[in-house]
Amino acid sequence: MKSPAGSVPGRKSTIPEKGLIMSGYGINSEMETQEALRRAGMRSDIVHINDLIAGTKRLSEYRLLVFPGGFSYGDDTGAGNAYANRVRNNLWDDVCEFLDGDNLVLGICNGFQILANLGLVPAFGRTPAREIALMPNRKGVLECRFVTLKPASENLWTRGISHLYCPVSHGEGNFYCTDETLNRLESGGMVAFTYCRDDLGPANGEFPYNPNGSRADIAGITSEDGKVLGMMPHPERAMEFVNLYDWPLMKEKLVREGKPLPSESVNMRLFHNIVDFFRG
C-alpha cells in the first residue's frame, strides 16, 4: 500500500537524522516502530541495549531515542522497572548527555513504563525523578483493545492531531500521580493525550473508554521541556487504514459515498510530527 503522505510536498525525502530504537530483554515492538518511522521519513537502527553498554553503538550518533513496546523482563518487579534499572545502572551518563542535546525521546507502552521508572517524564526542572506510576490495570489483567485519544495540549508531538485511534495492550497502564503532580502536569501543558469517548467527549474514568483506570484519563505525558513523550497506546500498531478496528464499516461507508479509501491511518500523524520537528 502506498502512503498518501508520499504525495505531500516536503514529505518525500528521508531526513538525515536517525533514530535509535532500543531492543533486548523482551522488548517486542521494535520492528513496527521502525516501520512507522520509515514511512514518516526517518531512518533508524534497532540497537540491543547490550551493544550500547558494550560501546559498540553510541547514542550520541542519533537524534531520536525510542523505547518501544514490549514485555521487558516479563513485567517482573513492575512493568518497565527492571529494564529501567539496567539503563540507570549502565547507561545513565549517556542518556543524560543525550537529553541535554536538541534531541527527542519517545516511549510507547513498555517504553513509557521505562521512562516513568527512569523519571525522564515528567522531569520537572529537567531533574529526573520518579513522580508518576503506571500501576496494574484496575481490572487486574492485560487489556487489548482500540481506544480513542485526544490531545490535551498543543506541542511538537500533538500538532495537527484531532484524535488518535489505536490499540492499548498492557497489564500495567493505570496512570497515577499525586494531586500536586497532577496540577503541575496540567498547568504546565504536559498532559499530551487523554483517553476519550468515540465522540471525543471525556472518558471520565469509564471503562472501556479509559481502559485501565488512569487518573484524569491520562494516556500520555511529556517532560517539562517537551522533548520526551511517554504514552501507553500504540500508534505504531495501526499505521494503516486496514489496521483500524472499525475499518470494514468505514470502508463500506466510503465506498457507498463514492469516496476513495485512505491508505494511511490518523495515527501516522504522530510520526510525521517527529520528522517535521527535525525538518525544522
Binding site: 517486542n28 515492538s29 520492528m31 513496527e32 516501520e35 512507522a36 513496546g69 489483567v141 492485560l142 487489556e143 487489548c144 483493545r145 490499540p167 495492550s169 500504540h234 505504531e236 500498531r237 495501526a238 499505521m239 486496514v242 489496521n243 478496528y245 472499525d246 475499518w247 470494514p248 464499516l249
Partner: peptide, 21 residues
C-alpha cells in the same frame, strides 16, 4: 479471553478476534 491476549503487536491487525460495534 480475546481482550487479555495481545492481538495487535507486530502491527498487522486487519480482522481481529471480535468484530463490529
Amino acid at each position: 479471553i480475546s481482550t487479555q491476549y495481545d492481538h495487535t503487536v507486530q502491527g498487522g491487525h486487519v480482522l481481529g478476534p471480535v468484530q463490529g460495534p
